[in-house]
Write a protein that binds this DNA or RNA. Structure first.
Length: 836
RNA sequence: GCGGGAGUGGCGGAAUUGGUAGACGCAGCAGACUUAGGAUCUGCCGCCUCACGGCGUCCGGGUUCGAGUCCCGGCUCUCGCACCA
């Protein structure tokens, strides 16, 4: 170092990076300049970037929310830079039992609590620097919103898809209140531990089962996360089988019935009572050694014999008392013989009819033919009650007499045995043959069943939209006319559920008394409110039209902006929310309100952030408060770090110290841009790396691989500053753009430092030069017998001979090539393997 | 039980089509600069070995010139559904 250099005055230091100053400045400017407000009428390339709206809890924004929103925001900002007009709205899913329970706990009315929570959420969300268009914010609790939720209900009602029926609810006999399923833990009330019972109440249902086939088949053409598609397929649960009628043999009916030839027991008369069963295995009919009815099956009392009647009645009563959850968690099978027999249509043999609660009334016909030889549940039951077990399907190494220690459920390569003239058929052939054979005399028909149930939307609660129905003595059930919506949820102080088993609204005669909309006589409102999932099943339709008071969704805006271009959310909603949204969309389509039937063109499920190896929860005490991290490190660093934790679609593990690495990138970026020189030309090698980085970051963002995109930027930063060199402006300009979706505030600031005068988000995503991203020389691995022994650097287009020559010049390689090279595997540009 | 996903350094994680395993970051170690550093910069950092070298992506087999990646069998973790005939 010369004296001259040593005495140079220190360069003026660039201003230090202070995120709190930068972030406040840009948040204020975005608001003032409406940077994030989308002109919905414009937009040649509209891009609707939707994120699942949060439930505004009193605890404030969860990092999980922020993780999801940041991931969505990066995608939205990226699409904007790619030239799309991006609409990124946000709102609050603020109705529901969650809010209500919390309100009860702290003794504050939900109508007071929720706006407070929302204010806190909005404050936190704005700090995070999301590109949200706040002019379209909505809350499901706003009468201007739930007016249209009620409208949606009425459309379903009009289309014959809403109906009322008695259904069981969970009831806590100690707290004397209706419980939601999630409030029942192991068959007991989550608050007091009292075993839960079931009560039958009249409730509103939506006929989603009518749409089961379409909901299933449409899945094939959706661009969704595979795991979500699978979850939906399983939930819909299609199974193909057959219904077969079994005839009840009844000695008492002998006198009044025609005697028919019933196989071997031709003496026995046949009554007209038929039991229809559903089975996916009609091929096993010869092995059906008994029938089982669900305890609730309507034929039970008719067929029970006098000497078994007491036992049957006792069993039915016990099953009815058992709560919904407990019945499903009890593993040991129990049942009672009814005293009646049916004849097996295949063998003509009489088989006993039992009732047991392992058969569910809601599925199939509520009755099964039990084939203990080939069904695990039937095997278990038959073993417990000593019922006959017969083999009718045999694998390659079985004979017809091979004993059954367990139910044999395999079908591949198996053939029928002990099945009369069907012996030797494969399972597939037999299914068809037996159903055909029985089609006339036993009304056997192929049937498709779904495990999906109709959607119960009634909630005996306060904090939700009242179901818009009026009951009139003269006119019956009358929907509230659309021009009388909304049916406003009244402000009442006693919003707690009580022992009446009905909604708190049912205690307010001044509210539920109303003139009948049809005849004007005194009538009564429905006092239940609707399920929160109905609120969220259509909110994406409302966002673009959130400022329209006279329609639920404006038709022109809807045509332009929907279906949703990109939807990102948690897989915990893989089934319910996403299925209900699809269903409501299909119904609105069929009702002529919209011209598409699938709401979300592309859906990606994001992962979950864990900490210390576990889900974050208040009880574990491992919750991260976003405010603290943003205060200390800045929102940009926090966003960047959250995205760097792991693959966005898988989540990651939060490590408290890791954020320093993310902040380090921003510090170095800040310094690099402020120091950047304009007095020379960019280094060709650095430029090459820059173009490679542009390509990689763009590709990675497009597939939501944010963690690797960030790694690529860090890597470029390392080369940019290697050896403490001072970068050229042209080496950093594009990098600021690459960083901008992740760290929008600092990017805006540095964009101005680079001399730009408009928002970086109105610039264009940088292009890369194809010629620069491909290297002309490559480092190839040289293996000897499959083991890497050295590397050679050759032209990308090097021939095998050139590579060989270079390899043999490598002492480490030559050392291992002891004998003759017997074989050479050469993959141009990749590797060379010598087999000796 | 059924269905989905996953097992890679001390840790989070990379490896897009079978082709140099461990990119990037955290933690750690050493050094430079410094009155000081929890700032910044440089280097090292899978395991065994002084070294040559050997071993190494949950375990056991297999296919291949070559396997984290493909096939067969098993183990573990995790999420979802839980008697759906």
């Amino acid at each position: 170092m010369t004296d001259f250099e040593a005495t140079q005055p220190a360069e003026e230091l660039p201003p230090g990076y202070d995120p709190s100053v930068v972030e406040q400045r840009w948040q204020a400017r975005w608001e003032a300049e409406a940077t994030n407000v989308t002109d919905l009428s414009d937009g040649e390339r509209p891009f609707y970037a939707l994120m699942m709206f949060p439930y505004p809890s009193a605890e404030g924004l969860h990092v999980g929310n922020l993780f999801a929103f940041t991931g969505n925001d990066i995608y939205g900002r990226f699409q904007r830079l790619k030239g799309h007009t991006v609409f990124e709205p946000l709102g609050y899913d603020a109705f529901g039992i969650h809010s209500e329970n919390f309100a009860i706990k702290v003794g504050v009315h939900p109508s007071e609590l929720i706006p407070r929570n929302i204010d806190n959420f909005r404050r936190q969300l704005k700090r995070a620097g999301l590109m949200v268009d706040w002019s379209h914010e909505l809350s499901t609790t706003d009468p201007g919103y739930y007016k249209w939720t009620q409208w949606v209900f009425l459309q379903l009602y009009k289309q014959g898809l809403a109906y009322k029926k008695k259904a069981a609810v969970n009831w806590c006999p100690f707290d004397k209140t209706v419980l939601a399923n999630e409030q029942v833990i192991g068959g007991a009330c989550e608050r007091c531990g009292t075993p839960v019972e079931q009560r039958l109440l009249e409730q509103w249902f939506f006929r989603i089962t009518d749409y089961a086939g379409r909901l299933l088949s449409n899945l094939d053409r959706l661009d969704w996360s595979e795991s979500t598609l699978t979850a939906q397929r399983n939930w819909i649960g299609k199974s193909e089988g057959a219904e077969i009628a079994f005839t009840v043999q009844d000695v008492m009916a002998y006198a009044g019935s025609a005697t028919v030839n019933a196989g071997m027991s031709g003496e026995i008369a046949v009554s007209p009572i038929e039991i229809r069963v559903f089975t996916t295995r009609p091929d096993t009919l010869f092995g059906a050694t008994y029938l089982v009815l669900a305890p609730e099956h309507p034929l039970v009392s008719q067929i029970a014999s006098d000497d078994q009647r007491d036992d049957v009645d006792a069993y039915v009563a016990r099953a009815a008392k058992q709560d919904v959850v407990a019945r499903k968690t009890t593993k040991e099978k129990s049942g009672v013989f009814t005293g009646a027999y049916a004849s097996n249509p295949a063998t003509g043999q009489p088989i006993p009819i039992w009732i047991a609660d392992y058969v569910l009334m809601e599925y199939g016909t509520g009755a099964i033919m039990a084939v203990p030889g080939h069904d695990e549940r039937d095997f278990e039951f038959a073993s417990a009650y000593d019922l006959p077990i017969v083999r009718v399907v045999a694998g390659a190494d079985h004979t017809a007499d091979s004993p059954l220690d367990d139910a044999f459920v395999e079908t591949n390569g198996c053939r029928l045995v002990n099945s009369g003239r069907f012996n030797g058929l494969t399972v597939g052939e037999a299914k068809l043959a037996i159903v055909t054979e029985l089609s006339v005399r036993h009304a056997a028909v192929p049937v498709v069943n779904y495990r999906l149930h109709d959607w119960c939307i009634s909630r005996q609660r306060y904090w939700g939209p009242p179901i818009p129905i009026v009951y009139c003595d003269a006119c019956g059930t009358v929907p509230v006319p659309e021009d009388q919506l909304p049916v406003v949820l009244p402000q009442i102080d006693d919003f707690r559920p009580d022992d009446s088993g009905v909604s708190p609204l049912a205690r307010h005669a001044e509210w539920y008394h109303t003139p009948c909309p049809q005849c004007g006589k005194e009538a009564r409102r429905e006092t239940d409110v609707s399920d929160t999932f109905l609120d969220s099943a259509w909110y994406f339709l409302r966002y673009p039209s959130s400022d329209k008071g006279d329609v639920p969704f404006d038709s022109a805006l809807t045509r332009k902006w929907l279906p949703v271009t990109s939807y990102i959310g948690g897989n915990e909603h893989a089934v319910l929310h996403l299925l209900y949204s699809r269903f409501v969309t299909m119904v609105l389509h069929d009702g002529g309100h919209i011209d598409f039937e699938e709401p979300f063109t592309r859906f990606r499920a994001h992962g979950m952030i864990v900490r210390e190896g576990a889900k974050m929860s208040k009880s574990r005490g491992n919750v991260v408060n976003p405010d603290e991290y943003i205060n200390e490190w800045g929102a940009d660093a926090f966003r960047l770090y959250l995205m760097f934790l792991g693959p966005f679609e898988e989540g990651g593990s939060f490590q408290d110290k890791g954020i320093s690495g993310a902040r380090g990138l921003l510090d170095r970026l800040w310094k690099s841009v402020h120091d950047a020189r304009r007095d020379g030309s960019p280094d060709p090698e650095v430029t090459r790396k820059l173009h490679q980085t542009i390509r990689k970051v763009g590709d990675d963002i497009a597939r939501l691989s944010y963690n690797t995109a960030i790694a690529a930027m860090m890597k470029y930063m390392n080369t940019l500053r290697a050896g403490e060199r001072t970068p050229q402006v042209d080496e950093v300009r594009a990098l600021v753009q690459l960083v901008s979706p992740f760290a929008p505030h600092i990017a805006e600031e540095l964009w101005r430092v680079l001399g730009e005068t408009t928002s970086i988000f109105d610039s264009s995503w940088p292009n890369y030069d194809e010629r620069l991203v491909v290297e002309d020389t490559v480092t190839m691995a040289v293996q000897v017998n499959g083991k890497t022994r050295g590397t050679i650097t050759v032209a990308k287009t090097a021939s095998q001979d050139e590579a060989m020559a270079a390899a043999m010049a490598e002492p480490n390689v030559a050392k291992f090539v002891t004998g003759e090279v017997r074989r050479v595997i050469f993959v141009p540009g990749r590797m060379l393997n010598l087999v000796v």
